[in-house]
Simulated assay, not measured.
Amino acid sequence: METIVDEPQWLRTASWLGCPLAGAALGWFLQSISGWVVSLSWVPFKGPFQLVSDIPQPWGALGGMGAGLVLGLLFAAVWAHERLIVKVTPTRITLTSKGRSRAYEAQLQAVFLDGKELVLLAADGRELAREKGDVDREAIAKAFTEHGYPWHTEPPAVK
Rank of each mutant, 00 (worst) to 15 (best):
D6T: 14
D6F: 08
D6N: 15
E7D: 13
P8S: 12
Q9D: 08
W10G: 08
L11M: 14
W16A: 12
W16I: 10
W16T: 11
L17V: 07
L17I: 08
L17K: 10
P20K: 11
L21N: 05
A24Y: 01
G27D: 01
G27Q: 05
F29K: 10
L30R: 10
L30Y: 01
Q31H: 15
S32I: 04
S34P: 09
W36T: 11
W36D: 05
W36I: 06
V38G: 09
S39N: 10
L40R: 15
L40T: 05
S41A: 11
W42S: 10
W42H: 08
W42I: 05
P44Q: 01
F45T: 10
F45W: 10
K46Q: 05
F49G: 07
F49W: 13
S53C: 04
I55N: 06
P56A: 07
P58M: 02
W59G: 03
W59F: 07
W59M: 05
W59P: 05
G60I: 00
G60R: 08
A61S: 15
A61I: 07
M65F: 02
M65W: 02
L69P: 11
V70Q: 06
L71I: 08
L71N: 09
G72P: 02
L73E: 04
L74A: 11
L74G: 14
A76P: 04
A77R: 13
A77G: 12
V78R: 14
V78I: 11
E82D: 14
R83K: 12
V88G: 01
V88L: 06
V88T: 01
T91V: 13
R92Y: 02
I93A: 01
L95C: 00
S97E: 06
K98C: 05
K98W: 06
R100M: 04
R100D: 03
S101F: 01
Y104C: 04
E105Q: 15
Q107C: 09
Q107I: 08
A110V: 02
V111Y: 01
F112S: 07
G115V: 07
G115M: 07
G115N: 08
E117C: 12
V119I: 07
L120G: 04
L120W: 01
L121E: 09
G125V: 04
G133T: 00
D136F: 05
D136Y: 06
E138Q: 15
A139N: 03
A139Y: 00
A139L: 03
I140S: 09
I140V: 12
A141W: 02
K142T: 07
K142L: 05
K142M: 01
A143I: 05
A143D: 03
F144S: 06
T145I: 06
E146S: 15
H147C: 00
Y149G: 03
P150R: 08
P150N: 04
P150V: 00
P150W: 00
W151G: 10
H152A: 08
H152C: 10
T153A: 14
T153S: 13
T153F: 07
E154L: 14
E154N: 15
E154H: 15
P155Y: 01
P156I: 03
A157M: 13
V158E: 13
